[in-house]
């Protein structure tokens, strides 16, 4: 047995040094050259950090665009989805309540205009994005609340629409935090 135990121990030691010390330190060092310096890219407003570009926040005030429902209420100390099954009656009731809330705050909105992402919780609970349709149905509310012309809001949505990768792959989307920061910037 000794012929197997000694190489096992020694290989474990040498690969621990290589894989757990040298490799991650090398990656960590290389990442210092990236946009977020390896600590996550931040978004600022007037020089003040107001969030991480990739992490959604809980927006509920009328002058901001709202993100998706979240199972962890956008608390980025953790992360989780709702894990509700598609036929769970309590879950379907919850979705129905979200639809009612949206209808209440968006007069004139019809049920079949509501995009699915606005009434379903994301996988991480921290989804930074909404679909373009989800931003458009909120435009009127934001415009009224901010007392700016609707056309200006629509234009901002267009500017902040992120196209598919290379224009070819994946969905279009909007980063809610960046759009809201842009809203606050135009006010000034």
């Amino acid at each position: 047995m000794k012929q197997y135990i000694l190489p096992s121990i020694k290989l474990t030691i040498i690969f621990t040094i290589l894989l757990c010390v040298i490799y991650p330190l090398f990656i960590s060092f290389a990442a210092k050259l990236s946009a977020g310096k390896g600590s996550g890219e931040k978004v600022t407003l007037n020089g003040k950090v107001v969030g991480y570009r990739l992490l959604g926040q809980a927006f509920n005030q009328p002058q901001y665009f709202w993100g998706r429902p979240s199972a962890v209420n956008y608390n980025a100390a953790g992360s989780a989805g709702s894990n509700k099954g598609p036929t769970n009656p309590a879950y379907l009731q919850e979705v129905d309540n979200r639809i009612d809330t949206l209808l209440k705050y968006h007069p004139g909105l019809k049920r079949n205009e509501i995009p699915a992402d606005l009434v379903t919780a994301s996988g991480s609970g921290l989804d930074p994005n909404i679909s373009v349709e989800a931003a458009k149905i909120q435009a009127k509310r934001v415009a009224i609340s901010r007392q700016v012309p609707l056309s200006k809001i629509i234009k901002l949505i267009d500017i902040h629409t992120e196209k598919p990768l290379f224009g070819l792959f994946g969905p279009s989307k909007i980063n809610v935090l960046e759009l809201n920061v842009a809203l606050d910037q135009t006010r000034k």
Partner: peptide
């Protein structure tokens, strides 16, 4: 685009 519960927009 399909079912969105538990999925990410991106």
């Amino acid at each position: 685009t399909g079912a969105m519960e538990g999925k990410e927009v991106r």
